[in-house]
Amino acid sequence: MNATTLPASAPNNRDVKDARADRAFRWLVTAAGLFVLISLAAAALSMLWGGRAAFEKFGIAFLWRDAWDPVLQDFGALVPIYGTLVTALIALVIAVPVSFGIAMFLTEIAPKWVRGPVGAAIELLAGIPSIIYGMWGLFVLVPFLAQHIYPWVDEHLGQLPLVGALFAGPPLGLGMGTAGLVLAIMIIPFISSVMREVFLTVPGRLKESAYALGSTKTEVVWDVVLPYTRSAVIGGIFLGLGRALGETMAVTFVLGNAHNLTVSLLEPGNSIAATIANEFAEADSPMYLSSLIALGFVLFLVTFVVLTIARLMLRQMAKKEGN
Results as ranks from 00 to 15, higher is better:
247 E>Q: 10
289 L>C: 10
25 F>N: 11
184 A>S: 14
206 L>V: 08
123 E>M: 12
32 A>G: 10
192 S>K: 04
136 W>M: 11
261 L>W: 03
124 L>N: 08
314 L>T: 04
82 Y>F: 14
100 F>W: 02
73 Q>K: 11
220 V>G: 00
155 E>L: 14
174 L>Y: 14
136 W>N: 10
150 Y>T: 03
145 L>P: 14
242 G>D: 11
319 K>S: 03
313 M>H: 02
56 E>H: 15
158 G>D: 01
137 G>W: 05
227 P>H: 14
4 T>S: 14
286 P>F: 12
95 A>C: 10
100 F>K: 00
216 T>L: 03
107 T>N: 04
146 A>W: 08
291 S>I: 09
73 Q>I: 04
245 L>S: 05
271 S>Q: 10
302 V>R: 02
106 L>E: 01
289 L>V: 14
244 A>F: 12
288 Y>K: 03
222 W>S: 06
54 A>W: 03
89 L>Y: 00
202 V>I: 07
305 V>P: 14
152 W>A: 04
211 Y>V: 13
151 P>T: 05
239 L>T: 15
140 V>K: 05
228 Y>L: 02
237 I>K: 02
17 K>N: 09
164 G>A: 12
304 F>A: 15
6 L>T: 14
61 A>P: 00
236 G>P: 07
219 E>R: 08
112 K>Y: 12
220 V>M: 11
270 N>C: 08
56 E>T: 15
108 E>M: 09
273 A>W: 06
75 F>R: 01
25 F>M: 10
72 L>I: 00
264 S>L: 14
139 F>D: 12
235 G>C: 09
261 L>C: 06
241 L>P: 07
5 T>V: 15
45 L>D: 05
246 G>R: 06
293 I>G: 07
218 T>V: 15
223 D>N: 07
24 A>N: 13
275 T>W: 07
111 P>K: 07
201 T>Y: 02
184 A>I: 12
289 L>M: 15
312 L>W: 05
26 R>D: 11
290 S>R: 10
205 R>M: 10
96 V>Y: 03
11 P>Y: 03
303 T>Q: 06
147 Q>W: 05
195 M>T: 04
256 G>W: 07
261 L>F: 13
299 L>G: 12
315 R>Y: 13
291 S>L: 02
321 E>A: 14
140 V>C: 07
305 V>N: 07
231 S>P: 12
223 D>Y: 11
274 A>N: 09
18 D>M: 04
314 L>R: 08
323 N>S: 11
221 V>E: 00
283 A>I: 08
131 I>Q: 05
10 A>G: 06
147 Q>E: 14
78 L>H: 01
136 W>L: 12
263 V>A: 15
221 V>Q: 01
96 V>K: 00
99 S>K: 02
82 Y>N: 09
267 E>I: 15
322 G>T: 02
243 R>Q: 09
5 T>K: 14
263 V>Y: 11
82 Y>P: 04
298 V>Q: 01
145 L>M: 08
44 A>K: 00
133 Y>A: 11
311 R>H: 13
242 G>P: 13
55 F>D: 03
69 D>E: 05
51 G>W: 02
176 M>Y: 00
277 A>Q: 13
318 A>E: 09
258 A>E: 13
280 F>R: 08
193 S>F: 09
266 L>E: 02
142 V>G: 09
152 W>H: 09
88 A>T: 11
95 A>R: 04
216 T>R: 06
15 D>S: 13
98 V>N: 02
273 A>L: 06
254 V>L: 08
269 G>A: 13
152 W>M: 03
22 D>T: 11
